[in-house]
Amino acid sequence: MIYFKYLRMVIRTMLQYRLNLLLTTIGQFANVFFSFAGIYLLFERFGRLDDWTFGEVALCYGIVIAAWSLTECFARGFDVFQGSIRQGTFDRVLLRPRNTVLQILGSNFEFPRLIKLVWAFAVLGIAVNNLNQVWSVLQVVTVCLMIASGFLIFSGVFILGATVCFWTVEGLEVVNIFTDGGKELAAYPLTIYSKSIRRFFTFIIPFGCFNYLPLMYVIGRVDDALYALTPLLGFVFLLPCLLLWRVGVRHYVSTGN
């Protein structure tokens, strides 16, 4: 499949710059290590956050960081898309007899970001150890679904951010509120936020569908198995994003650059 051929090309390029690879990996690790250390110290001092224990928040955090690192690695092309518009390299994408989304995905992979995935699993280990609960199969499956769903939702937001560039040429900083900001926000259970924020991140950008709602099921606060399936709504979120992307491409070819 052509996707893997693109992947191989990016890996070859990356191996040309090994020192850079190493330093970025270390930097990425430091980033998540200290952000989790912050959460740990917070609980060390205060014991709980609302009625959430350290283990529960660690579980939520681990899932969000796992999803986030996957997005940063595999949807990176959309994250840096404003460069393609400014330098005109998107014209080249249009000259290839291939799907544009596939080409943008294939244009960039940031493997150093995957170190965060490793760290996320370490945190999940800490969480499981701390929660001390008996895990059912469906609960484990739900955790996997949550990571996959988060990956797709974050990717959708990246695509939306890239789509904006078709109109503005430059990326809008405000989009970072939903990407970086969304990650920070989603790392904690949504109930600690105010009602309007909760609604927005459940019904508009469905972060709540991949962390808070299924989390309730995973940690045994609700028994309704329907909660375990809410991550699937995150999959649906990708559709309008791709649709808007197509509208953006059409706008681009009709206005030029």
């Binding site: 051929k5 090309m9 070859r12 390029t13 040309q16 710059y17 330098q87 005109g88 080249r92 000259l95």
Partner: peptide, 28 residues
Amino acid sequence: IGVVFGQRTQLWWDVPVSDSFDLLRDIY
């Protein structure tokens, strides 16, 4: 069709030309 923009490259900067050609073969 083939299109060449004299001011911009369509090849991959850091890999041998033959690698770029191979990828183009697969793309087309």
